[in-house]
Design a binder for these strands. Structure first.
Lengths: 209, 209
DNA sequence: TTTTTTCTACGTGTTTTTACGGGTGTTTTT
DNA sequence: AAAAACACCCGTAAAAACACGTAGAAAAAA
């Protein structure tokens, strides 16, 4: 059996190194490289041998895990990504599945499960454990009903989440306050909430923000 | 030189195991146990040999790192805690210092720094690197100026952060909406912000919430 | 090229927030 | 023990934000 080549992507060096130390105890695994964000990853893939498996943290600076997944699927079809996240969140999981991740692991999983997942994915399978699959299905209904926010809406949401007032946002975007209010109000309807604080809370849990 | 006995506390098993694998490569370190939350830690300390050093994640369920630090200082004076957090946040660091942590490390530090910190603390020193110390000092002024929120204010803030409206909160607490508004407005002044969203943002970064 | 969606904006009536002020009881300082 | 500071409560009036409907032009999708 050939060695399985891996790359580990996570923004916390300690986690990265720890995980590598852990993986390296297994003689059939070979960690080719570790990177701290999506950008570095893409550069590494350009230059080095392609790995069989990519262990990918979702929350990274520069280019997050979701972006990475999209890119990988386009440019490096042979690389199979397994997401590693600390969020036990149906929406995250669903998005990973959608973007073509071959597996999803929680950071509070154990060594055995990681190894299992790697083996399974390497052999052509997928690894989403039951608990996670259920969460994903639960969140589906909700996510679908939300569709997406439009560009302008997302832009305004961004400002709202930083605490800017309607007036401030209007002047930044060179539109009338009414327009900003309309966009906000449309978002309230889309997400079925009643005020800005709830909007931001919900947008956050749906990772729209 | 005796071996340095350690306990690792973190809610993510993979991080815990990874860090342990990493520490165990060093012959003078000995990981006595790993635990996944503050409660389990306190139980372990009750029953087992006391460690020299405790590597302590701050964000854990059941009993978080800050609570742990308080307890440690009361009951187990010989155990020296080093906080390991992913938050590069002056306020966190300051609170750790206040509660008697002997060091503060970021999760994106490297192996060398961890080992350094452990050695230094074991030998009677403290380990707060320069960058962090500066952040702490920066945040000091701000934190002090904030004083504390009163009970009622904190209560109302809690509701606000969950997206309840003024009216809803008023009826929950059996006071007029005007009162709720007054409290909110006082908080806005205290934290020097201009609306509820900013209030919640700031309260969060100051960990008042 | 139709059709649909998105972005922009307005009007009107309602609700919420803000600014300013006042009152009572409790705790802290002097 | 008196004075000062704080915490909590509420009112009015004006300003801002909001709800809800409408609607045209531009952009995207079919």
């Amino acid at each position: 059996m050939n060695k399985i080549n891996l790359i580990v992507a996570d923004d916390h060096q300690l986690f990265r190194d720890g995980l590598t130390a852990l993986l390296n105890k297994h003689p059939f695994l070979n960690v080719l490289a570790t990177v701290e964000d999506g950008l570095e990853l893409m550069n590494t893939l350009k230059k080095e041998t392609l790995p069989d498996i990519l262990l990918l943290d979702l929350s990274m600076p520069n280019m997050n895990g979701f972006e990475v997944l999209k890119n990988i699927r386009k440019k490096y079809k042979t690389v199979k990504a397994i997401a590693i996240s600390m969020h036990d969140d149906g929406n995250y999981i669903a998005r990973c599945a959608e973007y073509g991740a071959f597996g999803y692991l929680l950071k509070n999983t154990d060594e055995t499960e990681v190894i299992d997942a790697i083996k399974q994915v390497y052999n052509g399978g997928k690894y989403y454990n039951q608990d996670l699959s259920r969460k994903m299905i639960d969140s589906m209904a909700e996510v679908k009903s939300v569709r997406k926010l439009t560009k302008k809406e997302a832009e305004i949401l961004e400002f709202l989440s930083k605490g800017f007032t309607t007036k401030e946002i209007a002047s930044k975007l060179y539109v009338s306050t009414r327009t900003v209010e309309t966009h906000r109000s449309n978002m309230l309807k889309k997400l079925e909430v009643k005020n800005t604080v709830e909007l931001i809370n919900k947008a956050t849990t749906l990772s729209l923000i």
